[in-house]
């Protein structure tokens, strides 16, 4: 499976990133190197092997549904690039 510049552009779009033409070229080359190495996994027989997502085999962890203090609004807005009153401010959504 070889990756093309077009694939890199598609992935960049999904990841909400943009790159110059030179960067795209470099990424395509590096991706192919890395993915080629990763293809070694194809030689492992994983028939019937359950995927492992949680290494200490924790199942659901529940707690009581009780109200506790949460972050005050002014604290939550402290690091906002732009805010007003009780909101985060962003540029216009519809162009």
């Amino acid at each position: 499976m070889s990756v093309t510049i077009k694939d890199v552009e598609h992935i960049a779009k999904l990841a909400k990133l943009e790159f110059s033409d030179a960067e795209k070229e470099k990424f395509t080359h590096q991706f192919n190197d890395i993915l080629k190495y990763m293809e070694q996994l194809n030689s492992v027989d994983t028939t019937g092997v359950e995927p492992l997502a949680q290494v200490i085999e924790l199942k659901n962890v529940f707690r009581d549904d009780t109200v506790k203090p949460s972050t005050p609004t002014e604290e939550a807005l402290k690091n906002a690039p732009a805010s007003s009153d009780v909101h985060f401010k962003v540029p216009k959504v519809i162009g």
Binding site: I11, F31, I34, P51, L52
Partner: peptide
């Protein structure tokens, strides 16, 4: 981020992500 997005993207999820979880 790009590599991770690629291995999770439609058409590649089983070949990379699920396979790696099995390994």
């Amino acid at each position: 981020i790009m590599l991770g997005t690629y291995v999770l993207s439609s058409g590649y999820y089983d070949a990379y992500y699920r396979k790696a979880q099995q390994v």
